[in-house]
Design a protein around this nucleic acid. Sequence first.
DNA 1: TTGTAGGCGTTATCAA
DNA 2: TTGATAACGCCTACAA
Lengths: 349, 349
Amino acid sequence: MPRRPPALSVEPPRATIADVARAAGVHPSTVSRALNPDTRAMVTDAVAVRVAEAAEQLGWRPSMLAAGLRTRRSRTIGILVPDLVNPVFPPIVHAAEVRLAEAGYATLVANTDNDPDREAMMIERMAGHLVDGLMLASAAKGSQAVDLCRRRRIPTVLINRRLPGAEFSAVTNDDRHGMALAVEHLVALGHRRIAHLAGPSGISTAVDRRSGFRSAVRAAGLDPDLMPIMAADAYTIEAGRCAMERLLELGGFTAVAVANDLLALGAYDALGAAGLRVGPDVSVTGFNDMPFVDRISPPLTTIRIQHAEMGGRAAGLLLAAITEPATSRTDILLQPKLVVRHSTAAPEA
Amino acid sequence: MPRRPPALSVEPPRATIADVARAAGVHPSTVSRALNPDTRAMVTDAVAVRVAEAAEQLGWRPSMLAAGLRTRRSRTIGILVPDLVNPVFPPIVHAAEVRLAEAGYATLVANTDNDPDREAMMIERMAGHLVDGLMLASAAKGSQAVDLCRRRRIPTVLINRRLPGAEFSAVTNDDRHGMALAVEHLVALGHRRIAHLAGPSGISTAVDRRSGFRSAVRAAGLDPDLMPIMAADAYTIEAGRCAMERLLELGGFTAVAVANDLLALGAYDALGAAGLRVGPDVSVTGFNDMPFVDRISPPLTTIRIQHAEMGGRAAGLLLAAITEPATSRTDILLQPKLVVRHSTAAPEA
DNA sequence: TTGTAGGCGTTATCAA
DNA sequence: TTGATAACGCCTACAA
């Protein structure tokens, strides 16, 4: 008795253009033309239909790989983020994805974990996969990312973080102004001794927010050199806690302007551990307005950046760079705004 | 006077193995062998050195693409998540990345946005990029993902969500038991009328938690048919708010066991809008213990899943599936546990 | 309009 | 150990 093949049979090896050609009784090149939307016009309708049917029949799928080997394009964009666990990034990535999808591009995300070596590796990898463009949210001093992209001629845009010498377009926040907003808010509440919990050196957001802090303090008629400043060594809650602890040892402030929301959460922890209430005892401002900081206790007063705008604009710039490689660099500076919640209050009399 | 080339010159087209061969005075195959770590042993040291120098000199970089065309491997793994903005996923992804990196695999993440079409597209795309394996966190009823992976013979593991008929290994949580933990906690506090805010049908976590809810209610000696149940149509805050509003119209409960943390946040909103205090007036439990729910107000009592364990174990299973394709399917059921915070309390007398 | 031939950059399989 | 040759799957001149 003949056995029937099992229901969940594994298919034979992928059909290729050659297989389709054989089935349709035409030459492989004809199949290539018939199956490629851009060249279908070169082929008789009758042939096109016959080929399409054969392809359908055989379950032919284009191999982007083989195609890419010739065309060197993949309609895929890579996005490198320094830390996927940081909730600022997903909304930015998502906005970019939406915009890129509209233009027919798929998006692949890679996590560099703030490690320049991993970053370089992922760029190599993405380049190897022939991404048509790259969005770098992971830029940091000492990273060779930009150089790699330039050498490999990968259209690239920087997001969220600037990089001094880079010749790529960038979409960033006006970090100096954002931090000024925070300082002005604290000063308006009556604070005169304001600490700054800075981000890791080497990252533009940290540098700019820090210099923005000093300028704003000076603009308020205070002496920046009197304000305690402590840099965290990563944009993480833990690093924020450590830095805040050291700031507390220094003392001499009634408010602290923190360089980002994750660090601010760490500051909450250190303050809490020291028996201080955020708001009534010490005012805290964050930066980013990342998801959920409006729901924490106390709700964080912070500087809201335009997440969606950032992703969307960066995607637009990248698409432009891809279709018009000669286009000169464009920088977009997004304006953040202050969102007052309950982590800030007037200093105690 | 001869002009020097500009400092930031764009490099000539990439050197290929053929170029290196020419420079080193050997055959391209020899270069291939000398440059490939796995085959270096086949070549004299002298030759290997000479080839390596020539390659270095010319700035040769391997083309994964061309190599993949032959080997059909890329040492790259794809992870599909339904929603990157949901903070449960990044920790899982990260744990997987770490494990995979140890094994020499790079990880590419794609966002399906809970859209089966996008999911299928991304799988095609990843397959086209020759990923060596896939981790699917996006499984849902009606998705053709599993079928696609099977047909394309892509080693695959399911994470977080089961899929009824799938023949792939899976790492999931004991969702039924987890929800029982929540119900038992509420019953122990004295609640007798407990609502369930369920997740979207078609997703295993929603289905299992819902059935776990009913079983646990029955096990507590209560009648599940008396408990109001309302399903949200997505795992989002907004959907949670809507569902909670409808639950409030039904009324007749002092506590609500919610299917996930994001939905619970939505429930917080609806409850707040109705003038009810979470905790004192209505108890709320979540599920996942995603980042930050310990810091919201009030801190959420929830069911903690093993994020890191899940990512790591899934990566291990996938690596096994890749190296040992014949291995039979393995299912790992991770045990969640109850974390009591302040969103639950005894019902008012 | 269709077929032919060559190549994209690498690796596998022979034979030398 | 090394070299020669032929794929891998597709695309593009160019020729017919």
